[in-house]
């Protein structure tokens, strides 16, 4: 070992002003840092606005297509079993996409730009950063779901009233569907955050998230094999179906029970995040 100076000057008194004694990382501090991060980027607002827009517009479209359904005598009966809240939640799976993109960007934006090094220099324990991001994402998703549901409720009211389908706010079925929508969107967002923390690349993460969330259930549903159908029922979108109806669909057999749906979706949210939390420490930033 080579030492550069023999006698380091003893001037430690100059380096620690007492005023800053309380200065160290805490979880509330890290959470606040993540809030500032996410709210100071335009991409966040774009993702949130497009989520709300997409959910509302698709809800409006499905409300407007109700007239086509009633014109068709074969389908006309279905409308009687329909719950207005299901129409309002009709755009939810498109919202799942934009919210998944937001979830991915929360972390890949840092890796792509190198900001992750400032982040981990400030919080060397790393895991609390992921926890704070997850919490921020849950709050944002809840907020945008609330806004989207309110907008959807308002814009579809005219159409739904023609069929006496305007969901009653004192009807537990209404809240069940909206709660299911919120739960599923949060699961999709956290799934995407976990995958993105593992993959570190926006393109790769968004591809994986879109494939698992939308593409696979769509394409695999053409395969009429029992075991494939079983797999499909465990994918996030089909798994969320039981949570997005007032109960009638459960009898069709394809869907998971409400309880199973809750567990499956929670697993999608938690498993990638837990894996990410473990690897976050071991890998170079």
């Amino acid at each position: 070992m080579s030492t550069l100076t023999d006698n380091p000057p003893m001037t430690a008194h100059a380096t620690n002003p007492p005023a800053a004694a309380q200065v160290h990382p805490t979880f509330p501090g890290i959470l606040r840092g993540e809030w500032i991060k996410v709210l100071s980027l335009r991409s966040t607002w774009w993702a949130l606005a497009s989520t709300a827009a997409v959910i509302t517009l698709v809800a409006l479209a499905s409300a407007m297509s109700l007239s086509a359904t009633t014109d068709d005598p074969a389908l006309a009966q279905g409308i009687e079993q329909m719950h207005g809240a299901e129409v309002i939640a009709g755009g939810f799976h498109f919202g799942m996409l934009t919210i998944a993109v937001l979830g991915a960007l929360l972390i890949t934006g840092e890796y792509a730009t190198g900001t992750i090094r400032s982040t981990f220099a400030a919080v060397p324990s790393r895991t609390p950063v992921l926890g704070a991001k997850a919490l921020v994402l849950i709050v944002l998703t809840a907020a945008v779901t609330l806004v989207s549901a309110t907008l959807s409720y308002l814009v579809t009211m005219l159409q739904l009233s023609q069929y006496d389908l305007v969901p009653a706010l004192d009807d537990p079925g209404t809240w069940r569907v909206l709660g299911g929508t919120l739960y599923s969107l949060i699961a999709a967002a956290l799934f995407s955050l976990g995958i993105a923390t593992l993959l570190r690349s926006t393109a790769a993460s968004v591809t994986v998230a879109l494939t698992v969330l939308l593409l696979l259930p769509g394409t695999l549903s053409f395969i009429r094999l029992d075991w494939v159908e079983t797999i499909v029922s465990y994918l996030p979108l089909p798994a969320s179906s039981a949570l997005l109806t007032t109960g009638a669909a459960e009898t069709q057999g394809v869907y998971l029970s409400t309880q199973a749906s809750l567990i499956v979706l929670a697993a999608y949210a938690v498993v990638p995040l837990a894996a990410a939390a473990i690897t976050l420490h071991r890998r170079d930033a």
Binding site: H24, T26, R32, G114, T115, S118
Partner: peptide, 25 residues
């Protein structure tokens, strides 16, 4: 470590505030 390793969409002050917030600076 790398002067360019800052999110280009954020302002200088916001970047510093995100770091300061973690430590209650």
């Amino acid at each position: 470590l790398d002067a360019k390793a800052v999110h280009p969409g954020r302002s200088a002050r916001s970047h510093l505030r995100t770091m300061a917030a973690t430590h209650h600076i």
